[in-house]
Amino acid sequence: MGQIEWAMWANEQALAAGLILLTGGIVAVAGQFKGWYFAAYSIAAGVLVCLLEYPRSRRKKGSTMERCGQKYLTAVVKLLGPLTRNYYIRAILHAALAVPAGFLLSTILGTVCLGIASGIYLLAAVRGEEWRPIEQKPRERPQVGGTIKQPPSNPPPRPPTDARKKQPEVGGQENPIPVEVE
């Protein structure tokens, strides 16, 4: 089990925890449960966690599946620099965010989930992982394509030039009418 990137799972878990905090918070605020101000806090914490966790980190090797439209959030999260890059900070942040929500029954589930996510992040941090933005590679293709106006008449793989020369000759031999070249 040497190559597991724990942060990937932590990310999924934290995002789910964010959504659960948010849902629990909305239920408690909408129902005006006793102590609903904890729920109002949970909504804010849930939104924050979701925003922070939405953009996936680039994997160490191989390609990463991006979440739909994550590039805008990636840019924002990247701006915060070491605060978001370091998983120790993220683990501590999640643990701290989780605590106040633990005082209300509706948001306890969110607390537990976020706590677990924090634990997995800690494990990821210990193993030297960190958040790296997925950057759009500058596309080379359109540049090359831009200069080509016509589709190639002889699509690849093309015979090399010497082989190409031979073909008209073959055609010429079979032609009963002699063809004058220029």
Binding site: I4, E12, R59, L109
Partner: peptide, 22 residues
Amino acid sequence: TVALILIMTSSTELIRRSCYEV
């Protein structure tokens, strides 16, 4: 519920493909 959530977050396409053991 926590067990269910852990099972679900660890079985997304991404995790299944890249960390099968998890």
